[in-house]
Amino acid sequence: MKVGYLGPQRSFTYQAAGTSFATEDLVAYPSIPTCLKDLEAGFLDFGVVPLENSLEGSVHATIDSLFHRPGLQVVREIILPIKQQLLTAKERPLSEIRRVLSHPQALAQSQAFLEEYLPQAQLEAVASTTHAAQYVQTHPEEAVAAIASKDAAGHYGLTIAQQDIQDNAGNQTRFWVVARPDRMKQSFEPAVKQTLLLTLPSNQPGALYQVLQAFGWRKIDLSKIESRPLKTSLGEYFFVVDLVCDKDPLLIANAITEIQLLGATVQNLGAYPITLVAEKPREETGL
């Protein structure tokens, strides 16, 4: 069985994929669209992609790619605690670090630490946290640090100069396990959430209210609603709606039917269970 994920190896998506596919063949992809494209084409059995970070919000590439690939379904959500580490090739005072490399989201998630302890350092965005760790490993003579995971530190033999530098101790990222319908197997775990992608019939007053009313009067809890541009013309959107699956599934099915009768297009990504990955005990370290 082949499972694609947003790489490279040792990335946070790699860690998320390993929680559900510890013994499977994991294939790294350079981007979310290329991973989902190969999944749709049948070269993969499953794909694991990031969806949303609790500090930096949605990963738009995932939502937009799924919107344009209506044959794919979400089979599981994985919630992974994200702990960012400051990594160096060798021990050195923070005042000597001149550059800090990481993925743009990791840099943003660690902004308060960087402003307080590394105001002199130039921040450089790279393709992934793992790429940042690789660079520091291969350039030990440079006064450069990476922001990446403990897993990356161990794999590349780097020093953890400071642990858990993210701005919020509760930093988490949602990942989706995605599959084609013909590869989906019956799950005996109860569905916790369901996601719909909605396109309104026309840009007219009250259209969104009418759609949301179909959930409201049935007391179906919405845990998230977000708009994304259709990329057709300015002011045209589709909507991402997360439903809490604590009601009779027939109520949700009836709500979807009512929305379709109103003229809206509904892309049902499916109902799925959630895996919450336990946080590892913190290892104390000093600045």
Rank of each mutant, 00 (worst) to 15 (best):
R174P: 08
N171H: 15
I79N: 05
P33R: 07
T173Q: 09
I82K: 02
K224H: 14
Y237F: 12
E226H: 15
I274W: 04
T88E: 03
S102L: 03
E142W: 12
E40L: 09
G270Q: 02
L94R: 03
A16H: 04
F67G: 11
R10A: 08
E91G: 09
L198T: 01
S95C: 15
V266M: 11
Q120I: 10
D242W: 00
S149D: 01
S20A: 12
D38A: 15
S58P: 14
E96Q: 11
A253S: 10
Y14R: 05
E142C: 09
L250C: 10
A133V: 05
P8V: 07
D164E: 12
S223V: 11
P119T: 12
G206E: 03
L66S: 04
K280N: 15
A112S: 14
A255K: 01
Q105K: 08
K83M: 05
Q9Y: 01
G7A: 11
E141K: 13
A169E: 15
R98W: 02
N203F: 09
G286P: 04
D151I: 08
L222S: 06
Q120M: 11
F46Y: 14
D38R: 08
D151F: 06
I63S: 00
A133H: 01
M1Y: 15
C35P: 02
I63M: 06
I160L: 00
A253V: 14
D164I: 07
G57V: 13
A255L: 04
E189Q: 14
L66Q: 04
A179P: 00
T129V: 13
R69L: 11
A112I: 13
T130V: 05
D248M: 09
A207D: 02
E115G: 00
P205S: 10
L6N: 01
G47D: 04
F21K: 02
L234C: 13
